[in-house]
Design a protein around this nucleic acid. Structure first.
Lengths: 197, 197
DNA sequence: TGCCAAACGGAATCTGATTCCATATAGTAG
DNA sequence: CTACTATATGGAATCAGATTCCGTTTGGCA
């Protein structure tokens, strides 16, 4: 929940304002889930029980709201990894976490897709979110490598991106996604560099 | 270029209308490339040298235009496969074609992303395009299997989707994409089903 | 050459995002 | 406890862009 890049405002937010920000993020999550990323700003304000001006005060662009929702969930994802790492063998933790991460992306696939299409605004932002997850996965990978469970040449960032994109087809293709991730993990156990062509 | 699902109109298009449709697709391709998928309808009409009403007559929804452009390129992609299959060994043809396909998706990644986010309108349409590519890739895969070059359990559709999604990060990550595809191909040479966990 | 359905261009309309402003409130000083 | 003011708010006004309407033009045919 505590975001890595939470800009601390010059003058701290007033109590009511802080409450409204919370309500807006929560409301946005609800409405996005119900109506998709293209949900109307008005509906989000309504759901949060505030006026549109309030929404715009805290999130100057529609897209800032999308981002805030994602950020919120990314934070949760990081926490999950720490819990798993503490409770399982390295390879299990890795596999389990990728499942979680996969579920996360599936849920948010609409939002994730928006990150890709809206040229300027979002360029690099998806990347920024991934960067926050990277150390998390990297730790899991290191664990698995130390345990001798894999040797593949792909980095944590590579994998994050791969899984993120593998997951975008939508919730109805979990089987497909699983198969592809299995394929990737299988490939990871080899040294891919020399086998192409 | 000749699309698989080109609805034949009851009364054939008048000559000028046919010309305008061409101009619109071409213009849309240009403007999308320049301004992104969210380009203004007006600009597209301008580029094509027609009024907006003309655009709407032929493409009732903005998105129909996006689709038309994609369709156009998918057709080209299919042709390429046939040429490659005729000129190379099965595994080479497969690898080369995946490179082409990859380039195709990279170029169109904005359009492709739009397919994912705009919930209702596009749902299943990305899939429809992929279905047109499927027999193409399937033939290449069969060729490679017959030649004994692979045995993996992923289907043509699986691969198409995987590559499509691997390519979405954007043009600046060709290295990443290559590595991931290599990883997939490596995994494909194994029997993935039993190796997970 | 004349007819008229098909097609056209651009103005009008409609929808939804963003901004403005008069009013209300949290937080603080007296 | 009350007054004060910067911060925050709600809803109306504005703006941008997509879609529709309608009077005019044109291709194809008798």
């Amino acid at each position: 929940m505590t975001s890595r890049n939470e800009a601390v405002p010059q003058t701290p937010l007033r109590a009511d304002a802080r409450r409204n920000v919370e309500a807006l993020i929560e409301g946005a999550r609800t409405v996005f889930a119900r109506d998709g990323v293209d949900a109307h700003v008005k509906d989000i304000a309504l759901e949060a029980g505030v006026g549109v001006a309030t929404l715009y005060r805290h999130f100057p662009k529609r897209t800032d709201l999308v981002l805030a929702v994602l950020q919120h969930d990314v934070d949760e994802c990081v926490e999950t990894a720490q819990e798993l790492a503490a409770a399982h063998t390295p390879m299990d933790a890795l596999t389990l976490w990728l499942d979680r991460y996969c579920a996360f992306v599936l849920t948010k696939h609409g939002l994730a897709a928006a990150l890709q299409s809206g040229e300027a605004t979002f360029a690099g932002l998806g990347a920024q979110l991934l960067e926050q997850l990277e150390p998390t996965l990297d730790e899991l990978l290191q664990g698995a490598r130390v345990a001798g469970a894999m040797e593949g040449g792909a980095s944590a960032m590579d994998l994050l991106r791969a899984v993120a994109h593998l997951c975008t087809p939508g919730p109805s293709h979990i089987d497909y996604t699983r198969r592809m991730i299995t394929l990737l993990l299988t490939g990871l156990r080899q040294d891919p560099a020399t086998q192409r062509g």
